[in-house]
Computed example of a mutant assay.
Amino acid sequence: MKDRTLEALGLADVPAEQPLIYPGRPVAEPGLLAGGELLPLRVRPRRLGAWYVGRRTDRHPGPDQQLDQALSALGQVGTGQRHPVLAVGSNASPAQVRNKLMRLGLPVAVPMVPVRVRGIAVGCSAHIGRAGYVAAAPYLVPDAETTLVVSWLDAAQLKAVDDTEIHYHRAILPGDRFPLTMPSGERLGGAYIYVSVHGVLVGPDGRPRPGGGDQRELIAALLQDSARLRELLGPDPQTWVLRAAADRELREQGTRIFGEEGRLLPQTDFLPYVDDSAEPRLYDELPPLGDSLSPLA
């Protein structure tokens, strides 16, 4: 098997460190993020824990294992004790997930699987994140069908991700209302998703702006549409992210401008699904791992 490091796969860039690449490169096929590697998962018509992990590499010369066996060999809990979490933005990037977990010294062992989701579309959160980018956020579209990455997180990993999502509520999407179909054809009973507390951005036509695309194009469009944003953060996307990342007050002013100029659409449809047990804390309170790791949105 070829080298499965994130670097070799072209998946190593971290959006938190390079804001204009947001949301980063997502997982395209089922895999197990294990340290700095993304090991392939072989889809089977069985539960996720029985899928096989390809481990025949120079670092892992042994035979393939079932996923739950591989997690146990890493000293981690199996899939039955993990929480499925849908990613609409950079949490679909294995490098970003690794960055978040490493910052807290948590094990980097996460199954990540693209899943078809009905009823959800991806827009842009109506806020400016700490790294300077405008992050993605979900909104409801009954007939939409979107492929989103689901990560299976243990309790400590889930809390760690909660603590980075200070502009979001964690919601529980029931599978009967939002069908979630695995590559095996299995339907999930539900999954968590992070919903922006600010709502989603709308364009000049009043419709939600598509999210998850080219960050440079998005910021350029926002600057073009608003003289106040150009004055505050312009004239170009590079200047925007540099100024925003360096100054919390500028980020907050820019976020207020979205509302004052009528550029946001509240997302009250998600309120019945919000998980009140999720209590994110300010990312500033988290212990630093090192100077090379940047704060997250």
Results as ranks from 00 to 15, higher is better:
124 C>R: 12
183 P>F: 01
291 D>Y: 10
74 L>S: 08
57 T>G: 10
123 G>R: 06
161 V>T: 09
236 D>G: 03
60 H>A: 07
222 L>P: 01
149 V>R: 06
205 D>K: 01
57 T>E: 11
75 G>N: 09
36 G>M: 02
91 N>L: 15
135 A>F: 12
109 A>N: 02
59 R>W: 02
176 D>N: 12
67 L>M: 00
199 G>T: 01
92 A>Q: 15
188 L>G: 01
240 W>M: 10
278 A>R: 03
7 E>V: 10
31 G>Q: 05
179 P>F: 09
252 E>Q: 14
175 G>N: 03
38 L>H: 07
275 D>Q: 04
199 G>S: 09
158 L>D: 08
261 E>V: 10
248 R>T: 08
157 Q>R: 05
262 G>Q: 08
124 C>K: 13
264 L>D: 07
125 S>I: 05
148 L>F: 13
200 V>P: 05
122 V>I: 14
26 P>E: 13
189 G>E: 15
207 R>P: 00
17 E>M: 03
99 N>W: 14
282 L>R: 12
235 P>A: 07
175 G>I: 11
122 V>T: 14
52 Y>P: 01
78 G>C: 07
16 A>I: 05
268 T>K: 09
206 G>A: 01
154 D>H: 04
220 A>Y: 08
165 E>I: 13
60 H>P: 01
13 D>T: 12
266 P>A: 01
53 V>I: 07
282 L>S: 14
22 Y>F: 12
142 P>W: 04
273 Y>N: 00
154 D>F: 10
183 P>R: 03
259 G>C: 12
109 A>W: 04
288 P>F: 00
267 Q>Y: 04
286 L>T: 04
149 V>M: 10
246 A>T: 05
166 I>Q: 13
254 G>T: 06
294 S>Q: 14
162 D>F: 10
296 L>D: 12
199 G>K: 04
274 V>I: 15
32 L>A: 08
41 L>C: 11
51 W>H: 01
62 G>H: 03
160 A>W: 02
100 K>H: 13
260 E>Q: 15
13 D>G: 02
68 D>A: 06
220 A>W: 05
206 G>Q: 01
254 G>I: 04
2 K>T: 03
277 S>H: 06
262 G>C: 06
164 T>V: 13
258 F>C: 11
31 G>T: 02
154 D>I: 12
232 L>T: 03
271 L>H: 13
140 L>S: 07
282 L>I: 02
268 T>S: 13
200 V>E: 00
245 A>S: 15
235 P>C: 02
169 H>D: 15
8 A>M: 05
100 K>A: 10
178 F>I: 09
210 P>I: 05
111 P>L: 03
142 P>I: 06
293 L>M: 15
277 S>A: 13
84 P>N: 02
216 R>V: 09
48 L>K: 03
